[in-house]
């Protein structure tokens, strides 16, 4: 693990050229935020120099959210982490890298932008997919990554579950039946969200991809409107990718103030605009109104309301022997 951490640092350093004798921040993030933070870092560096005269440099590291958290936990010296789900940042509490109440330190559960889970279907929607129930129908091939290895896939799974609970007469048993039927329709379980997008988009496999809204928008806007459409289900989950200053590291590096300002600025108008441009839903009402056309309106439930928080959801559904394992095991 140490070696892995070292390797990650090394890659992060190499990819951004030689570090100069100036304040530098390492932001350890998850997979689909590459483009977002590339833009944001440039904008923040400019803002910070205008404000304080200090020249900032950034090092970015991207990868699966769980793997990234693990690297930080094992010694990768991240000043800030910006991951896919709170559960992964919770893992840092154990090693006393951050305090237990980390999520209360920034507004909106420390999630400056949100996203949700939507469907990407082939042009014309030949299988007539409108809502979660349609994914369980026989003959529909569904592409989603493996919830055991992908943070995004856990959101997908819980979104389907939450929808089933909210149906008339919905309960955990019904929800389990729906999710089981959906996973019986999955021909390939990739290990990460990007992998699933590739399977659906490039390999032409499957009728519907369950995906991050930002990932789906990217696929439609960058690869082709004539090939895919986004279908918004009637209800989905509010995905809140959280951010945190890694106290122990920031104190050691003397970067606490800068790191704090770096994450604060995500909530500013400019930060919110950049997030929206990269298809993340902004928190700021004014910016949200500006980009309203880009985001379909749908009913969103939160992890806290529907599942009692990540720790509980993880234990019930994704731990060994949890509801996901029961789908595949005959027992």
């Amino acid at each position: 693990m140490r070696q892995l951490a070292l390797l990650l640092t090394l890659t992060a350093t190499l990819s951004l050229g030689p570090a100069f004798a100036q304040t530098s921040l390492l932001n350890v993030s998850y997979d689909p935020t590459r483009e977002l933070y590339k833009d944001y870092n440039a904008a923040f560096a400019k803002h910070w120099q205008a404000k304080t005269g200090q020249v900032l440099s950034f090092r970015q590291s991207h990868g699966g959210s769980g793997k990234q958290a693990m690297a930080v936990r094992d010694g990768l010296e991240a000043d800030v982490v910006t991951l896919a789900l709170a559960y992964d940042i919770d893992a840092l509490v154990e090693r006393k890298l951050i305090p237990l109440d980390w999520q209360a330190r920034f507004p909106n559960n420390s999630s400056p932008y949100t996203s949700t889970i939507v469907f990407l279907v082939r042009k014309g929607n030949p299988k007539g997919i409108k809502d979660w129930g349609d994914l369980a129908k026989p003959g529909v091939a569904v592409i989603t990554p493996n919830p055991k290895t992908s943070g995004g896939a856990r959101w997908n799974y819980l979104a389907a579950w939450a929808w089933a609970l909210k149906q008339p007469g919905g309960n955990d048993q019904k929800a389990k039946e729906l999710v089981t039927a959906i996973f019986k329709n999955v021909p390939v379980l990739d290990s990460g969200a990007r992998g699933s997008t590739t399977t659906f988009v490039e390999r032409g496999l499957g009728d519907v991809l369950i995906a991050w809204e930002n990932e789906a928008q990217l696929a439609v806007n960058e690869i082709g409107r004539d090939k895919f459409e986004i279908v918004a289900p009637s209800l989905s989950i509010l995905a809140e990718p959280p951010v945190a200053v890694v106290d122990k590291v920031a104190e050691k590096h003397g970067t606490r103030l800068t790191a704090q300002a770096y994450l604060d600025y995500l909530y500013s108008e400019e930060g919110q605009n950049i997030a929206a441009r990269h298809y993340y839903r902004p928190r700021d009402a004014k910016v949200a109104a500006k980009y309203a056309a880009q985001f379909p309106k749908l009913k969103l439930v939160t992890i806290a309301d529907a599942f009692g928080g990540w720790q509980k959801a993880q234990k019930t559904h994704f731990a060994d022997g949890g509801s996901f394992d029961q789908i595949y095991l005959k027992k």
């Binding site: 769980g66 793997k67 693990m70 055991k148 290895t149 290990s191 993880q314 994704f318 731990a319 060994d320």
Partner: peptide
């Protein structure tokens, strides 16, 4: 890898 992702 799955187990590691669950911090197991």
């Amino acid at each position: 890898i799955s187990k590691l992702e669950q911090y197991d």
